[in-house]
Computed example of a mutant assay.
Amino acid sequence: MSQIQQGMALLIAAFHKYSGKEGDKSTLTKGELKDLLNAELGVIFGKCEDKAALDKIFKDLDSNADGAVDFQEYVTLVACITMLCNDSFKKSK
């Protein structure tokens, strides 16, 4: 498998590791999103204990306002974070 295919498989696996713990297996609830952010992106986000910040992240991600973060919304988050990390990496060179 190529590195990009491995990355895609890891993104999918991470989503499904947290989705469905509180209900629908195809979406993330606010609690599941918090667990994912803390466990998988804690180094970038810090521990996500600020309820107002978590509410804002969740609201911004939930583009269709259905009260859950689906896979497409999750991938959008990961893509945006990846772009920010890339910009930061380029500046530090």
Rank of each mutant, 00 (worst) to 15 (best):
A39R: 09
H16G: 08
T27Q: 11
V75I: 15
K34E: 06
S63R: 12
I57W: 05
N38L: 07
G46F: 07
T29D: 06
E32S: 04
N64M: 00
L54N: 05
G67H: 09
L28W: 05
L11I: 14
I12G: 07
L77C: 14
D60S: 10
N64F: 06
F58H: 03
Y74E: 06
E49T: 15
L61K: 04
G23E: 03
A79P: 02
N38E: 12
S26N: 09
K47F: 02
N38M: 03
V43L: 09
N86R: 13
D62I: 00
G67L: 03
T29Q: 02
L36C: 12
I12D: 01
K59L: 11
D24C: 04
L54F: 08
A14R: 13
G23M: 06
L61I: 10
L37C: 08
Y18N: 02
G31F: 02
K51M: 06
S63P: 00
N86V: 10
A13I: 00
V78D: 06
T27A: 13
K25Y: 02
L10K: 14
A13Q: 15
C85Y: 09
V69C: 04
L33E: 10
A79R: 09
N64K: 13
E32V: 01
C85I: 13
I81L: 15
G31D: 07
L36H: 10
D70S: 11
A39D: 14
I81A: 07
A13D: 15
K56N: 12
V43G: 11
G23L: 06
K56R: 14
V69H: 06
K17L: 08
L54M: 11
I81N: 04
Y18T: 03
A13T: 11
F15V: 04
K59H: 12
N86G: 01
L61C: 12
K25H: 09
L33M: 11
